[in-house]
């Protein structure tokens, strides 16, 4: 019923804007249409503006990241449960396959119950990009961009850019060797200098533009790039192959499709200032 009303609105809207194509009018995202808002009160903290050289991109490319607010922890099972209670179309039995594959919320007992083995304060995982985005929309927030996420995540407990520190890379890599961290509670890893926890050491996290990563999984080719597959690809490549902790993160993003639901992947939200 709600859908019908909204598509009617859509048509009215459409009629009203046949004249000129104005960008601003059209920002209705395709998923937000039927969302009920959630009251997300998780603590956010400010990440201040700064310039950083992304791992991918030209070596001399510096990117200005404007200040933004970021959730201090990933979205938990209990927070996501509230969301699906209010938004039945995002329940496991209701979700459309185009938005989430069959292992969406795989370990839940049913549509609105977590399994007894799950910690409500553990990060929600087995979640698709569309579902993560819908949650953020419903909370009045958005998914971080790769730049925002990487910028926030290059900090350690004392420095804003700790990427050259051995300890920083060692800590990240040690996570790869710990099995089943996804079931741990959020906020058990130390907060970084911005006051944000769990960027490393808990789960992988979705980013808004994860699909801009051109890694095909064929790493030898990725280094030189394949102009036949990627237009303009010559300008994108790893700036520092030694930074293999980051390399693995980008490889992971490159292996994803937006409806994938992976056991070791969750998400957190940001808000632009």
């Amino acid at each position: 019923m709600k859908t019908t009303i909204l598509s009617v609105t859509g048509i009215c809207f459409a009629v009203s804007c046949t004249r000129v194509p104005a960008q601003q009018e059209m920002t209705t995202p395709m998923l937000q249409v039927t969302l009920s808002p959630v009251n997300d009160t998780v603590k956010m903290t400010e990440v201040k503006s700064g310039v950083y050289t992304p791992f991918f991109g030209k070596k001399d490319t510096s990117i200005l990241v404007r200040g933004f607010m970021m959730d201090v922890v990933p979205v938990t099972n209990s927070r996501f449960l509230e969301f699906v209670k209010r938004n039945p179309q995002w329940r496991r039995s209701q979700v459309k396959r185009i938005y989430a594959e069959s292992n969406y919320l795989l370990n839940w007992t049913n549509d609105t119950t977590l399994s007894p083995a799950m910690d409500p304060e553990a990060p929600v995982t087995n979640i698709s990009w569309f579902a993560a985005k819908a949650y953020c929309d419903a909370a009045g927030k958005s998914l971080p961009t790769v730049d925002q996420w990487e910028y926030a995540a290059m900090a350690d407990e004392t420095t804003e850019d700790a990427r050259n520190k051995t300890s920083y890379n060692k800590d990240i890599l040690s996570w790869y060797e710990k099995p089943n961290t996804a079931g741990n509670r959020v906020h058990q890893t130390p907060e970084n200098v911005w006051g944000i926890a769990d960027l490393h050491g808990l789960v992988w996290e979705w980013t808004a533009d994860f699909n801009e990563v051109m890694l095909s999984g064929e790493s030898r080719k990725d280094v030189s790039n394949d102009a036949a597959k990627f237009c303009g690809s010559g300008s994108i490549g790893a700036t520092d192959l030694m930074n293999y902790a980051a390399f693995m993160r980008f490889a992971f993003r490159g292996s994803l499709k937006a409806n994938y639901c992976v056991q070791n992947q969750g998400f957190r939200a940001v808000k632009n200032l």
């Binding site: 699909n211 036949a228 597959k229 990627f230 690809s233 937006a258």
Partner: peptide
């Protein structure tokens, strides 16, 4: 979102230039 549905990857390199999968 549409690119995600098609599994098309793309990135804006400069205001006039995009890298994308074909």
């Amino acid at each position: 979102e549409f690119a995600n549905v098609l599994s098309v990857k793309y990135k804006e390199i400069s205001p006039m230039d995009f890298s994308h999968s074909n």
